[in-house]
Nucleic acid binder design. Sequence first.
DNA 1: ACAGATTGTTAACAGATCTTAAACGGCTCG
DNA 2: CGAGCCGTTTAAGATCTGTTAACAATCTGT
Lengths: 236, 236
Amino acid sequence: MKPRILLVEDETDLGNVVRQYLEMEMPEFQVDWVNNGRAAYERLKTRQTHYQIALIDVSMPEMDGFELAEKIVQLGLNLPFLFLTARNEKSDRLYGLKIGADDYISKPFDIDELVLRIRNILKRNAGVVIAADNRSAIAREDVIFYKETLKLVIKNTNEIDLTPREAELLDYLFRNENRVLKREEILTQLWGQNDYFLGRSLDVFISRLRKHLNDSDFISIDNVYGVGFVFQVRRK
Amino acid sequence: MKPRILLVEDETDLGNVVRQYLEMEMPEFQVDWVNNGRAAYERLKTRQTHYQIALIDVSMPEMDGFELAEKIVQLGLNLPFLFLTARNEKSDRLYGLKIGADDYISKPFDIDELVLRIRNILKRNAGVVIAADNRSAIAREDVIFYKETLKLVIKNTNEIDLTPREAELLDYLFRNENRVLKREEILTQLWGQNDYFLGRSLDVFISRLRKHLNDSDFISIDNVYGVGFVFQVRRK
DNA sequence: ACAGATTGTTAACAGATCTTAAACGGCTCG
DNA sequence: CGAGCCGTTTAAGATCTGTTAACAATCTGT
């Protein structure tokens, strides 16, 4: 199952913008947006879904952000959280940090900075390391490729261990998706030379990767006869 | 030994003030202050002393803060760091966060806020630490590791005595749980160098730790062929 | 449609890498 | 000085991986 981010924000416009931006910038996460503290609390209480991090607006009707955060701590969920708020008084900031916030970000905030801060918090906390530079994990539609752990996850269920060479080739394909790659290009890039036997070797790896990618509805490796291959990533 | 904080700051006055204040507010930590990036790098390169967090000034002569931080990431130390800086341009802030900073704090900063932010970062990073009668311990699921007394307790029944080297390696693994650790990283950090025989030695210790951890249902040490190891901590 | 070229798939092999037990040798401490 | 501990080295066996081989399937120009 995709790791999840919980966004708690009562302003409809801002909530929508942030959710959309996060899903675009961090496609390997699902963003759940709720518009009040109580709804967030209900979700967290019954650990039905497990969240990686919570982004909480301080000023909300009914149950405000501070109150929600305190409940999170009380519940003993080890859930990182940060505040997104228009209130930038020192006392508020200190209070937020004191109850354990991993960050306290004042509106208007830079959304790129928010993404980076979230990534850095998750990096320390979660098992799955996703670097900001997108080099260690690549997500496309129903496929996530963790380059460092040599793991390939399809439809969030199917977890496959790759060999180093398989991973290297797959990485190369991802970095050149949707364009025709000549055999010669691939061989000189990955094997350093280009002869008949290495060509056959490449075919074997292509075959293995195809088998691995069988369960994906969006990704396939297509042959261009006499030329090379195309790593096709279809969009939804 | 007291856990340590590394402060890298070239301005003498500020360095002194911050160090004194931190030691007053966080007496359980020892604060080591060095006044340039190169000195900090030398300390971190081989693992003479182990730090919990690094506070880094961006503007320094010789090796600047960004450069130092990049080296920290390259070395594969899982060391949290944050920037203390007078530069508050958006591009600088984004760059700092991009290379993995846990925070980017602009001077003049509120020292109480700094302390809170440091505490929150450490809280997440250290996991459940039991500080009873000054024996520091790391607890994860069904395993408790008392690193001062070199004892490992599994399921509250099985008590195992570790050798110093075993404990050192296990400590390193705990600090880097759920990440791929390259053989080279481990060897340069723990043994100070990396050659064939030390590699064999590492394998032997891994094997011994595995035997010790056999009774845990949650922790295992997995190999990534041709790369290194992953210290897997599964959650309930 | 046919032949040759290219590509696809599977199995087998050899070398690299990893695992583990056991032997070794330096060190400490009584 | 002898026993015990501990890190290192050795060595044998297990496992993993990239390559090769063999054969099947597909493509292309004629």
